[in-house]
């Protein structure tokens, strides 16, 4: 049952991902990308990471996709369907990407990953919250400063003239 669900979801996600990189219309690519994000949220649920699934929907779909769609709309001439979507070496690049996949897949099946017998933590969210102000306090604060700096930087760069 779970395996069947995995396969279906994987097919959906990967074909949507292929559409993202091949669709001529960029805006359609962005909406395919949203479908990929949903698929990945589904995998997170399969992995019992509900919090990450919700965060995925919230940040990737709510924020990043919106940003990308805005970028596409604000730079509208690029929508011109007459333009080629790929650069000239796309055939070579496609071969490289396939090779990359083969190598990575070989690696993931060759390496003996250490498997665990531990059980799921009872309240992962509570533990995660405590970790963020405990072990991960410094990265957490750095992430917050990073967001502020990114916001200031984005405003400096994209603000209207005058």
């Amino acid at each position: 049952m779970e395996q069947l669900f995995f396969i279906l979801l994987a097919l959906l996600t990967l074909s949507a991902a292929l559409m993202v990189v091949t669709t001529r219309n960029l805006l359609h690519a962005a909406f395919w990308l949203i479908l990929v994000f949903f698929g990945i949220a589904g995998f997170f649920i399969l992995l019992h990471a509900e919090f990450l699934a919700v965060v995925q929907v919230l940040i990737y779909i709510g924020a990043i996709s919106t940003l990308i769609i805005f970028a596409i709309m604000l730079t509208r001439r690029i929508m011109d369907p007459q333009q080629p979507r790929f650069n000239s070496q796309w055939g070579l690049v496609g071969g490289l990407a396939a090779l990359l996949f083969v190598v990575l897949a070989a690696v993931t099946t060759r390496v003996a990953w250490p498997t665990t017998s531990a059980t799921l933590p009872a309240e992962p969210i509570k533990q995660l919250g405590a970790d963020f102000v405990g072990v991960y306090a410094v990265p957490f604060e750095v992430a917050s400063v990073l967001l502020v700096v990114a916001m200031i930087g984005a405003i400096i760069i994209a603000r209207e003239r005058g």
Partner: peptide, 15 residues
């Protein structure tokens, strides 16, 4: 993650 779920679902309407 109920409360967060509500916020996340809201982003679907935005899209």
């Amino acid at each position: 993650v109920g409360v967060l779920y509500l916020v996340a679902v809201g982003s679907i309407s935005t899209i």
